[in-house]
Design a binder for these strands. Sequence first.
DNA 1: AGGCGTACCTGAGGGC
DNA 2: TGCCCTCAGGTACGCC
Length: 268
Amino acid sequence: MPELPEVETIVRGLHGAVTGRRIAEVRVEIPSVVHSDLPGDFAALLQGESIEGVTRRAKFIVMRLGSGRSLVTHLRMTGRLIVEDEPAEDAYARVRLRFEEGGWLRFSDVRRFGRMRLAVDGAWAEGLGCEPLDSAFTSEALRGLLRGRRTPIKSLLLDQRLVAGVGNIYACEALYQAKIHPKRRAGGLSKERVGRLHTALVRVLESAIEMRGTSVDDYVDAEGLRGGFQNMLAVYGREGLSCFRCHAPIKRVTLAQRGTFYCPRCQR
DNA sequence: AGGCGTACCTGAGGGC
DNA sequence: TGCCCTCAGGTACGCC
């Protein structure tokens, strides 16, 4: 479910809420969603660790632990991390952490796609592409990544090895803002178009963070609150509705097995 | 190398 | 009501 802006919102909430706390108890409800890089039991290894801080890399939530290890969570489609005073009733709770200072962290996930991993080093992040909100992500850098690629631009935006953190909603929205057709060959984009795409990506992601993410269906942040960017979507989920710019009906096609929304008149 | 299909899961919503 | 189909914010893996 969550893309970069949603994960960033969760991370900011978690950072304030759990930094400095110590894990007193670990309850693993569904063992298949946890993994430990070290031999031994996930819960036993995690118990007693303190949380030094919470950061984001791509769509991963990284809790830095006192031992130097990290607890790395990926929410995939429907995962949630919720901070609460008491453990709430939840049929989809997968992992619960109780803190020595009081309070709980609940990892909940209807579809069991999400994962929690106890990592000893940075190997889990190998192969991830650049952070679109990092200063190193320039229009020139994006042009370099797209050069020579014959794939449709939308497919490349979803490829975490190139640009990390963009998902289906924001890929659609950025291409709309940049007035670029999602099926256009990535390597064939002019310098000017890449510039527009770069600007659009950064703007869309930054505004979505400002609005605390997009709640189309079930996304909520660490406090259980919905985001606000769903009211700003120009194309995603708007099939048949009229384009805000030119009033042509928004089209939906399938590209790289994903629903893809665009305006057939103003995206070229 | 890159692109495609499929798998992983569960639930919601539409058509009949 | 209920059955069956499609779709969902993501990624990994195997196959050409």
